[in-house]
Computed example of a mutant assay.
Amino acid sequence: MPINDTAERPALRPVPAGTAPADGELSWQETALCAQTGPELFFPEPGSSTREAKMLCGICEGREACLEYALTHDERFGVWGGLSEQERYALRRRRAGRR
């Protein structure tokens, strides 16, 4: 019997009560293409391809806001804003090196 591990994977999540984001901070989620697909595309099994998720991100109007959200909130899993975990980590390091 296959294990349903999608429940363990993070997804776009609401902001907890009392920590409301600034106006429009999460408005990109309303029209994000990822919201119209399953989370398994953006949170693939280790070693699986992220190519399809990145292609979808590439045509999404919310890509830049999504990436900034992931960087600001230290999202460590999945594809956010068209970048994988490793790519976001490298970007954070590059940004930190410019300061």
Rank of each mutant, 00 (worst) to 15 (best):
Q29M: 15
T50K: 03
H73R: 14
G62S: 09
K54S: 09
T50A: 13
L56D: 03
P16D: 01
L67A: 08
G58V: 10
P46Q: 01
Q36K: 14
R51C: 06
L26R: 12
A70I: 04
Y69M: 01
P39C: 08
G24H: 04
E52R: 10
L56H: 11
R13G: 11
G38Q: 13
F42I: 03
L33A: 08
V15K: 00
P39V: 15
C57T: 08
L67W: 02
C34N: 04
R63C: 12
T72W: 00
A32V: 05
G24P: 14
V15E: 03
S27W: 02
A32C: 11
K54A: 06
T50S: 11
L33N: 01
G24T: 08
C60A: 00
P16A: 08
D74M: 03
S49Y: 10
P14H: 11
P44L: 05
M55W: 09
C60W: 00
P44W: 06
D23R: 13
P21A: 10
A32D: 11
P16L: 08
C60S: 02
Y69H: 14
R13F: 07
S49W: 03
S27I: 07
S49N: 10
D74K: 05
A22Q: 10
P39R: 13
W28M: 11
G58I: 12
E61R: 09
L56G: 07
G18F: 07
E52I: 05
G47Q: 01
T37G: 06
G58Y: 01
A35K: 06
P46C: 01
L67P: 07
G62Q: 03
R51P: 06
L71Q: 08
P14D: 13
L26E: 07
L26Y: 05
G62L: 04
F43I: 02
E30A: 15
A65S: 12
I59L: 00
Y69R: 00
A22G: 13
M55F: 07
F42L: 03
A32F: 03
D74Y: 04
A20L: 06
L56M: 14
D74P: 02
A35V: 09
K54F: 09
D23T: 13
G58W: 04
L41H: 15
C57Q: 02
P21F: 08
A70V: 05
E30K: 15
T31N: 06
W28K: 04
E61V: 04
C60T: 02
A17N: 00
G24L: 10
E68C: 08
F42P: 02
P46W: 02
L26W: 05
E40D: 14
P44D: 02
A22F: 13
W28P: 04
M55V: 14
P16Y: 07
Q36H: 14
G58N: 09
L67Q: 08
Q29I: 11
I59N: 00
E52P: 03
